[in-house]
Amino acid sequence: MTAYTAAATHLALAANGVSYAYRDLGTDTGAPPLVLLQHFRGNLDNWDPALIDGLAVGRRVITFDNTGVGASTGSTLHTVAEMAYDAIAFLDALDLDRVDLLGFSLGSFVAQEIALYRPDLVGRIVLAASAPQGAPDMHGWSPDVIAAVGGREPSPEGYLRVFFTRTAQGLAEGQRAAGRIFAGRTEHRDEPTTWQTRQAQYDAVTRWGIPDHSRLERLRGIEQPVFVAGGDNDPMILPRYSHLLAGLLPDARIKIYPESGHGFLFQHHQEFAADVADFLGA
Rank of each mutant, 00 (worst) to 15 (best):
193 T>C: 14
92 D>E: 15
101 L>V: 07
195 W>F: 13
185 R>H: 07
250 P>T: 02
132 P>C: 07
261 G>K: 04
255 K>F: 05
56 A>E: 10
153 E>K: 08
39 H>C: 12
4 Y>E: 10
210 I>C: 02
112 Q>T: 11
25 L>C: 09
141 W>K: 06
112 Q>F: 07
36 L>K: 05
8 A>N: 10
57 V>P: 06
57 V>H: 11
218 R>A: 14
49 P>T: 04
279 F>M: 00
267 Q>P: 04
281 G>T: 15
125 I>H: 01
202 Y>P: 00
143 P>K: 09
47 W>D: 01
178 A>G: 09
182 F>M: 14
281 G>Y: 01
265 L>M: 15
227 F>G: 06
55 L>G: 02
217 E>R: 15
145 V>A: 11
192 P>N: 05
47 W>N: 01
144 D>H: 11
52 I>L: 12
9 T>R: 11
132 P>F: 09
25 L>E: 12
78 H>I: 10
81 A>Y: 08
260 S>V: 04
262 H>F: 08
114 I>F: 02
240 R>D: 06
246 A>L: 11
85 Y>G: 12
13 L>A: 15
203 D>Y: 03
93 A>C: 07
198 R>I: 03
132 P>I: 02
125 I>V: 15
39 H>V: 00
47 W>E: 00
256 I>F: 06
55 L>Q: 04
22 Y>M: 09
238 L>D: 01
89 A>P: 00
195 W>D: 12
274 A>P: 02
22 Y>D: 08
74 G>H: 05
28 D>G: 10
110 V>G: 06
169 Q>A: 14
275 D>Y: 07
58 G>H: 08
210 I>A: 10
67 T>R: 14
248 L>E: 04
